[in-house]
Each structure stands twice: as C-alpha cells, then as structure tokens.
C-alpha cells in the first residue's frame, strides 16, 4: 500500500502538528482528524500512514481509533446528519425526527443515500444542544429545534450543496433566548 495523498499534501502540517506536543504519540488523534477531513472517513491506508508517521503499529492506531465514535471507519456520505438521541432531544421528539428523515431520505439510520450525498446517524451522546432540542448536526454543524418542516428545509439546502456552516447559521441555536 502506498501512502495516501494527504501525507504528502500536508507534509508541513503534519510536522507542525507533531511539534505541538511534548510527545509525538499525542499527534495520533489530530492525524486521524486530518485523514478524515480529506477522505470523509478513515481507510486502512490512513491507519497505516498514521502508524508509520508515529512509529506505532497499525493495531495500536486502530485500537485508539476505534475508541472514538467520530472516527468513521467506513465510507460516509458527503453530508453526515447526526441526530442527538440523548434524553432531552429524546423527550422532545427526536425519534419522530429520525422517522421523518428515514422516510424522506429513503434510508435507515446508519445508511447512506444511494447518491452518496447523505448518511444518517443517531448518537447516544448528548451533543450539548439541549436548548435546541431536538437537535442534529450536519457535518458537526449544529441545527436546533428541528421540526420535520425544518428538517426538510435543511435537506433542501444540502441538496443544493450548501455549506454545513451556512446551514447552521440559519438553523442554529441562538445563545440568548428572546424573552
């Protein structure tokens, strides 16, 4: 296996990341993030590349990688919609939201639309958006108070290729509630 493109492309960045820490091994997660930013998920060759950069075995890198829910080890859609499944969102209709998204996208949780555009996930972790329950993230950008109607609008924007950050700017949760 030859090294994935990001290793060459981000040569300096990799050096810079490693230099941030007193010990090299600390760069493991940042490098996995870097790999995932490039590919959208982490492939075997990314694991191998990180292992080679850090002088660790592939097993060690995989062991660490698999500990974290946000490192995806399988291909993901261009947009990953993650619905919060923890308590406040759950009590505020998260499952209805998930049902709606499944119907609307024609996929089940964990699946990706056939066009590779959207992957639908549910997280068990509270995403710290309880003030906007039910909430979801589009590529980790927050959207709050996601009623089925708002969900549809979000999907429309996604289909137009809108930037997740911009979507969040429209559907995010304001820091201060109007009285």
């Amino acid at each position: 296996m030859s090294a994935p493109a990001w290793v060459e492309k981000h040569k300096e960045k990799i050096e810079e990341i490693i230099a941030r820490y007193p010990k090299k091994r600390s760069a493991l997660m940042p490098l996995l993030h870097l790999a995932q930013e490039e590919r959208g998920w982490i492939a075997d060759e990314d694991i191998e590349a990180v292992a080679a950069i850090l002088g660790e075995t592939k097993s060690v890198v995989e062991s660490v990688c698999s500990f974290y829910s946000l490192f995806y080890r399988r291909p993901m859609g261009k947009y990953v919609i993650t619905v919060c499944g923890n308590i406040t969102c759950g009590l505020s209709g998260a499952q209805e939201l998930v049902d709606h998204l499944e119907r609307r996208l024609g996929i089940k949780v964990g699946e990706t639309t056939p066009d590779g555009l959207i992957t639908l996930l549910v997280t068990g972790e509270c995403i710290a958006a309880c003030d906007g329950a039910p909430a979801l993230q589009v590529n980790l950008e927050y959207c709050g108070n996601v009623t089925p109607e708002r969900a549809d609008e979000i999907i429309e924007l996604i289909k137009k290729g809108e930037d997740p950050a911009a979507i969040s700017d429209r559907f995010g949760i304001p820091p201060v509630k109007a009285v």
């Binding site: 660790e56 075995t57 097993s59 060690v60 995989e62 062991s63 698999s66 500990f67 829910s69």
Partner: peptide, 10 residues
C-alpha cells in the same frame, strides 16, 4: 513490546 494484540472498541 510488539503491540499487535490490542483492545478495540469501547
């Protein structure tokens, strides 16, 4: 010190 056998997942 071969680090081949590991724990994965959580």
């Amino acid at each position: 010190q071969e680090d081949h056998l590991v724990i994965t997942q959580r």
